[in-house]
């Protein structure tokens, strides 16, 4: 049983590490700030959750696991708020997302498919 738990937790930690690296590659490869947010999202969700879940399996039913779950929940609650604030600040400063297509919003008329301005 211990062996099964060990293997499972190592698999989770490895999975989290791999996804974190993929997210890092995404942050380097993706073309603009709004796309890079998705790469950062991978690190914040799958990378973090998976590694912490693996650590929790190693710790078993102890205070350590409670604290790990607390950290995961805190990052999950605060992460989207920070990302949303950042996206709003970028839009407010005039950084527009690089789009391949802008679908018409129901209440706006300024649809421009070639809008690729990137500097602030």
């Amino acid at each position: 049983m211990d062996l099964v738990l060990d293997v499972l937790s190592w698999a989770l930690i490895l999975n989290g590490a791999v996804f974190a690296i993929i997210g890092g590659i995404g942050m380097l490869r993706l073309p603009d700030m709004f796309a890079r947010m998705h790469g950062a999202g991978i690190i914040d969700t799958m990378g973090m959750i998976s590694i912490f879940l693996g650590l929790a399996l190693q710790a078993g039913f102890t205070m350590v696991t409670v604290k790990l779950v607390m950290i995961v929940l805190m990052v999950l609650y605060t992460g989207p708020t920070a990302t949303h604030a950042l996206a709003r600040a970028a839009l407010h400063a005039g950084v527009l997302p690089l789009l391949s297509e802008r679908r018409a919003a129901p209440d706006t008329t300024d649809t421009d498919a070639t809008d690729t301005r990137e500097d602030a």
Binding site: G41, T45, G79, P80, H84, A87
Partner: peptide, 13 residues
């Protein structure tokens, strides 16, 4: 909106 942002691939602006 937070659930959308939490899911990679979509960010609510």
């Amino acid at each position: 909106a937070n659930s959308i942002t939490l899911t990679p691939g979509t960010v609510s602006l």
